[in-house]
Write a protein that binds this DNA or RNA. Structure first.
Length: 453
DNA sequence: CGTCCACGTCTAC
DNA sequence: TAGACCTGGACGG
């Protein structure tokens, strides 16, 4: 799910599905999650959401029991609220569906009180996502590129003296202290729109903009054609929001995703180039890489048609001499920026409600992916009385359930074994929690040419 | 089987 | 500037 637009669409999704709904009871966290438990037990509460950059804040508000005209005391108590701030990692998202069985990888779950019982789940199969209870937006992250544009712009332009901005523009764009909401696909799309080579110094791109620091008006003091770089850091993610789908959410066959794929002009496109940046993140671009490109360039296999390019450049390390290291780069760049294409002005913030309704339906279809519910577990229906079902996962298995022919228990073997049993691999059993595990890992590493021992 | 790759942070040599 | 943290899909042999 997760760059700025996806987080925002997620917050809208939450607001939509939680509207006029009352939640209650315990908030259930999965066992495998290492994130904090949410201590909040209100008989009745509501949920609303808000996004900022790459964070989503849920606000729980307890409802007074006035309507329940009870003699009990609770009605006089404070109308409490609790904030939970989420980061989505690589795979986090919210889902809303009929309670009963929880989705696989559902790590934090909020239940409605009314029938049919529904559940709002934070679902995150890679578990890089995080949440903080009772927190606010994290201090380390800058203003949101989407919804705090003037502040965002100022924050960047007032800090250009920082050494960070000596680095290449594509790498600086992932720094959330300044570009809160920009991620790997957005940086590619934004640079591509302006034909800015990814590996030119950030300062050289940004310094020309200082004259227009507070460019929240549409009247820049220096006349340029079309939106400038910082402007696009705002407009391009807005475009994704206005696509109305779920943004980058590769649910195959999902229609909203194909709209998103169509929208992409550069990221993962077969006619574009790519290489790993200094952080080993793939940057997609066209034209020149720029003078600050890593000298040993690793080209990643193209996403779509790896087969086709088989023998050519598939995952090979190529030493590429970067042709022009010209120092006149700055001058070139200014030209480039001024030449920037006129941009389709993204209309303001409005996603079709009907489309979000679509989302709801889609999430209803996902019942196949359900996991043995922890609620069941609580009711004494222990997971340990393991039956082979699609809802069972590796963490439910004991070591003795694994093949015992003496061979290594590798992750792949576990996968195969489970497939035979109709199961799926899950969570903390990665490479098999055996003694051999460590050896295997080390072997793997040294095989990769890294100093393993 | 194994290897590589993925929308993102984090910390530790 | 490597890795760690994770799961799982695509693809290679």
């Amino acid at each position: 799910m997760p760059e700025g637009p996806e987080l925002h669409l997620s917050s809208r999704f939450v607001n939509l599905v939680c509207k006029n709904r009352i939640f209650g009871g315990q908030i259930i966290k999965s066992d495998v999650s290492r994130q904090p438990v949410v201590e909040w037990e209100a008989p009745h509460y509501t949920i609303s959401a808000e996004s900022r950059g790459k964070e989503v804040k849920l606000t729980l508000t307890s409802q007074s029991d006035a309507q329940n005209d009870r003699l009990q005391t609770t009605s006089n108590e404070k109308p409490r609220t609790l904030n939970i701030v989420f980061q989505f990692g690589m795979s986090g998202k919210f889902d809303f569906y009929e309670a009963g069985e929880l989705m696989k990888h559902a790590h934090l779950n909020f239940f409605t009180v009314d029938e049919p019982k529904m559940v709002l789940s934070f679902v995150d199969y890679r578990r890089f996502g995080k949440w903080q209870v009772g927190a606010d937006w994290s201090e380390e992250r800058g203003p949101c590129v989407l919804f705090e544009y003037p502040k965002f712009r100022e924050n960047v332009l007032n800090n250009l003296n920082k050494p960070l901005f000596n680095r290449s523009i594509c790498e600086v764009m992932l720094n959330q202290q300044y570009f809160n909401g920009i991620g790997n696909y957005l940086r590619a799309e934004i640079l591509y729109r302006l034909k800015i080579p990814p590996f030119v110094s950030a300062r050289s791109v940004l310094e020309p903009l200082v004259a227009n620091i507070a460019d929240d008006t549409d009247q820049p003091k220096i006349k340029i054609e079309g939106p400038d770089f910082l402007h696009l850091c705002h407009l391009v993610p807005l475009e994704v929001i206005n696509l109305g789908g779920t943004g980058y959410d590769p649910v195959k066959g999902g229609e909203s995703y194909s709209a998103f794929e169509k929208w992409l002009q550069c990221y993962c496109k077969p006619n574009m180039k790519n290489m790993a940046d200094h952080n080993k993140r793939t940057i997609w671009y066209s034209g020149q890489a720029g003078p600050m490109a890593p000298t040993e360039v690793k080209v990643r296999g193209k996403k779509q048609s790896r087969k086709k390019i088989k023998k050519e450049d598939q995952s090979e390390v190529k030493k590429i001499k970067l042709e022009e290291k010209s120092t006149s780069e700055n001058e070139d760049l200014k030209e480039i920026i001024v030449k920037s294409n006129k941009q389709n002005s993204a209309t303001e913030d409005n996603v079709d409600v009907a489309q979000v309704e679509e989302l709801k339906k889609e999430s209803g279809k996902k019942k196949m992916k359900l996991q043995k519910s922890r609620v069941e577990e609580k009711n004494g229906n222990a997971v340990s009385d393991l039956k082979v079902s699609k809802h069972t996962s590796v963490t439910d298995l004991k070591l003795s359930d694994y093949p015992t022919d003496g061979t290594r228990v590798t992750r792949s073997r576990v996968k195969v074994f489970l497939n035979q049993a109709g199961l799926k691999l899950k969570s903390s059993q990665k490479d098999g929690a055996t003694a051999e595990n460590k050896e295997t890992k080390i072997k793997k590493r040294s095989a990769r040419g890294k100093r393993g021992n």
